[in-house]
Amino acid sequence: MNKKTVKSFRPISWPTKGASAKTGKWRTMRPVIDKEKCIACRICYIYCPEATITPEIEIDYEYCKGCGVCAHECPKKAISMENEVH
């Protein structure tokens, strides 16, 4: 199969970062990491369902939907969910 010959009318998406648009716009609550409390255990990195947290514990706010799973799972309560202002 040649990607270039796939007809344009098909609702196809190819693996790429943010194939479905910038989902960060969906966020109503914003996870904020308190670096003082963070022990870099990477539990948030493992649990993030959207892979928007890096192994270096940085959040990609362009795609983070603000689900709060990271804040819930953090063993040190180092992530707080704050009201988002877009």
Partner: peptide, 13 residues
């Protein structure tokens, strides 16, 4: 077939 679900060229519809 111009497109199909292909493990060698991953895509979704």
């Amino acid at each position: 077939v111009d497109w199909f679900l292909d493990v060698k060229h991953p895509s979704s519809f």
